[in-house]
């Protein structure tokens, strides 16, 4: 039902539609708007021709200008790499312990180290390097294999119990599973280890365990159980536990052994990147 009428007040025609007595004026578009609209159409056609636009079945139209966002990204990445070449070279050629003397280089290494850590290391060590059971916390002052920046560098390069020929290896034997100790003996040693950091353990068991410890464990963990970095043997007398400090976990560790692996990164990452990560980890608060 449409009847175009002329509106008396404005002198404009109505659209002819009516909704519950409400009619709408057929006010024409402003000219500037129309011309802008036409211009965008012309622009769009031009755009189809010069820029990549239409999807095809297995490809898309390339456009006359040959623009490609992928190529742009590659170019930008190459430019970034080039701009960093000098500082990366300096990093490779500076002794790790001396990088700190060059604040600009040091800050570069820390910033880069943080993001490389997030990409490569955080999966096991956590995004804040706080670790977890079986994965050392890198913020604290307890180090299995040494906490100087060179030690950290070596650990990242060659890994621990990794498949690299220069890897460092320390074995925690499975004392019960491999029938080195009896069930009771394992239990006694557990009591002894707990007594190093806790009071009120079973005194008799502790005395028996101490004897077993001196025979079987002290060669790696040391006579006073303060650990040994040559074998990556943890300090058992401090407040930090690698796998957990409750009785059950310690028993399990002694009975079944432990052999977690830190991969070697020498083949996977650029030396400058490993150096950045080493400096970053060293800066987290526990570096020696």
């Amino acid at each position: 039902m449409s009847k175009v009428e002329k509106d008396e007040i404005s002198g404009t025609d109505t659209t002819g539609h009516e909704w519950d007595g409400i009619k709408e004026l057929d006010t024409p578009m402003p000219r500037w708007w129309l011309w802008t609209f036409y211009a965008t159409i012309v622009w769009a056609i031009g755009y189809w021709i010069v820029m990549p636009a239409w999807p095809l079945i297995s490809d898309h139209t390339r456009g006359m200008l040959g623009y490609s966002s992928r190529a742009n990204v590659e170019q930008e990445l190459a430019a970034v790499e080039e701009s960093r070449a000098d500082v990366l070279k300096a990093l490779r050629e500076t002794e790790l312990a001396e990088v700190k003397d060059n604040q600009e280089l040091y800050q570069f290494a820390l910033t880069g180290g943080r993001s490389h850590f997030a990409v490569n290391c955080s999966q096991c060590h956590g995004s804040g390097a706080q670790g977890g059971p079986g994965f050392p916390n890198l913020n604290d002052d307890d180090w299995l294999w040494g906490g100087s920046v060179d030690d950290i560098y070596q650990t990242i390069q060659y890994g621990i119990r990794s498949d690299h020929e220069d890897t460092r290896v320390g074995n925690m034997p499975a004392f019960l599973k491999d029938e080195i100790l009896e069930r009771d003996q394992v239990s006694d040693v557990t009591e002894y280890v707990l007594s190093l950091s806790q009071e009120g353990r079973d005194a008799e068991a502790v005395a028996r365990g101490k004897e077993v410890f001196a025979n079987e464990c002290a060669s790696c963990h040391g006579e006073n159980a303060k650990g040994g970095r040559d074998f990556g043997a943890p300090n058992l007398a401090d407040a930090i536990w690698f796998y957990g400090g409750d009785k059950e976990t310690i028993y399990k560790t002694i009975a079944n052994g432990r052999a977690n692996v830190m991969p070697a990164w020498e083949q996977r990452l650029d030396d400058a990147v490993i150096r950045q990560i080493s400096l970053y980890v060293h800066s987290l608060g526990g570096g020696e």
């Binding site: 995004s127 804040g128 390097a129 706080q130 916390n137 913020n139 604290d140 307890d142 407040a239 930090i240």
Partner: peptide, 18 residues
């Protein structure tokens, strides 16, 4: 305040914040 990690336990049992 550092929020990751919230705090760190040191080997002598003290707690460290960053």
């Amino acid at each position: 305040r550092d929020r990751n990690p919230l705090y760190v336990q040191l080997s002598d049992g003290t707690i460290r914040n960053g």
